[in-house]
Amino acid sequence: MHEMSLAESIVQILEDAAREQGYVRVRTVWLEIGQLACVEQESLRFCFDLVTRDGIAHQARLEIIEKAGQGRCLACLAEMAMAAPYGVCPVCGSQNLQVTGGDQMRVRELEVE
């Protein structure tokens, strides 16, 4: 259940940003979660609802923008979409693939008041 500590990290980011930006309530949080990030979205939603109780993000809406996994073959340098953090290069058949995108977990934007 590391989604619980991820949710707590999100709340901390919201509280830090509240001090910098001067808002008192968060209505919506947009997260960018890569398809290859180590996170279970439903579990993150559940934990987010739990840890935001009684805080500045109480009843805030959580919007998750999913980013597709991307990779590169280190043998032939072909670029490809990746649904898992491993695979086979469709061009040369090598298994030596590097994830180049879609493993991020970021707080992108907030709607606040």
Partner: peptide, 17 residues
Amino acid sequence: ISQARMVRIERDILAKN
């Protein structure tokens, strides 16, 4: 009536760790 606004923060969830 509140005045909602958008804030772009672009921060990694694991940044602190």
